[in-house]
């Protein structure tokens, strides 16, 4: 199940985000890492060090592209320059699939540079799915859309977030990058049961999973990617793996970034769940057993 058409039938294991403070360590120590995720926009430039370093990484590692500015849910036409540059980069990286967020961020040619939540309406489903299809057709690689963390809900919404996600991915016929930390953050901010969300996603469309840490404030949680993964998020991860099978998993750590070893060790905790799920797949452990691992770890 995890190697599916939405991740180009790959089996990528556990990766981490490629970040500037780790470049030297990676290039000199050459640690064994299943794969790296890059933020596409950091390499959509004309030349210089970012591309040279990327090529050095590509010589030795598998790389998957993750974007932050496609804004699938923006109501107006896609930016052609953005798409053209993105396609050039996909040719360089040979990313087997490409992900970006189920959100909006630009209007009337002006950009907010933020992942703003969509109203969960049928109009937004139609607009977003059309744009995902256009991107998929142009780039000619599978697209996975990521659920975002959110801090606001709209009066206009006609369905839950997970219903909206289901509607969009069916209409666009695309994959899902399931961010279990984002589900947790939003569940706390909007008072829903995160397990209901994970239970509702179409497991056969999950191309990749994100895990990350977050920051808790008095009245809300912020998706800051500056901490280790917290236990409730591991619990959601276990459920996601139980449902989708062993799936390419990526730890995001974007601020107060510790040493490479620390980030990688945090990511590799995911293997406990993946191995249990693999065993379950060959009949060694029941599916419920994967969930039990979560309880043991917690």
């Amino acid at each position: 199940m995890p190697a599916n058409r939405f991740n180009a039938f790959t089996d990528y294991g556990v990766g981490i985000g490629l970040r500037v403070p780790h470049y030297d360590h990676i290039l000199t120590k050459k640690p064994v890492v299943d794969w790296f995720e890059i933020i596409s926009e950091n390499y959509m430039v004309d030349g210089g060090r970012p591309l040279r370093l990327l090529d050095q990484i590509l010589d030795q590692y598998r790389v998957v592209q993750h974007g932050v500015s496609m804004y699938f849910g923006s109501a107006q036409a896609l930016n052609r320059d953005h798409l053209k540059r993105l396609k050039e980069l996909t040719k360089r990286t040979k990313t087997p699939w490409l992900s970006d967020h189920l959100c909006w961020g630009s209007v009337d040619g002006r950009y907010t540079h933020d992942l703003l939540p969509l109203p969960y309406t049928f109009e937004a489903v139609k607009t977003t799915a059309e744009r995902i299809r256009q991107v998929q057709d142009y780039l000619e690689i599978p697209i996975a859309v990521e659920n975002v963390s959110s801090y606001a809900e709209y009066h206009e919404s006609e369905m839950t977030e997970w219903e909206f996600l289901n509607e969009v991915v069916h209409a666009a016929d695309c994959g899902i990058l399931l961010d279990v930390n984002n589900i947790y953050v939003s569940s706390q901010n909007h008072s829903f049961d995160p397990m209901t969300y994970v239970d509702a996603i179409p497991a056969e469309r999950v191309a990749q999973i994100h895990i990350a840490g977050h920051s808790k404030f008095e009245k809300y949680i912020l998706d800051t990617h500056d901490h280790p993964v917290l236990d409730p998020v591991w619990g959601l991860y276990a459920l996601a793996i139980e449902r989708a099978g062993p799936t390419a998993t990526l730890l995001e750590w974007d601020d107060n970034i510790p040493s490479f070893e620390e980030v990688h060790a945090e990511a590799l905790k995911a293997n406990r769940y993946l191995k249990a799920a693999e065993a379950a797949a060959v009949g060694g452990v029941t599916a419920e057993g994967v969930g039990q691992v979560a309880q043991v770890v917690a």
Partner: peptide, 22 residues
Amino acid sequence: SYVKPNDRLSSFERLEIYNRQY
């Protein structure tokens, strides 16, 4: 007019999170 409040944050406070983030 467009942002729902919840039991902890008003519509204003929820929108403010995005205003500050920007």
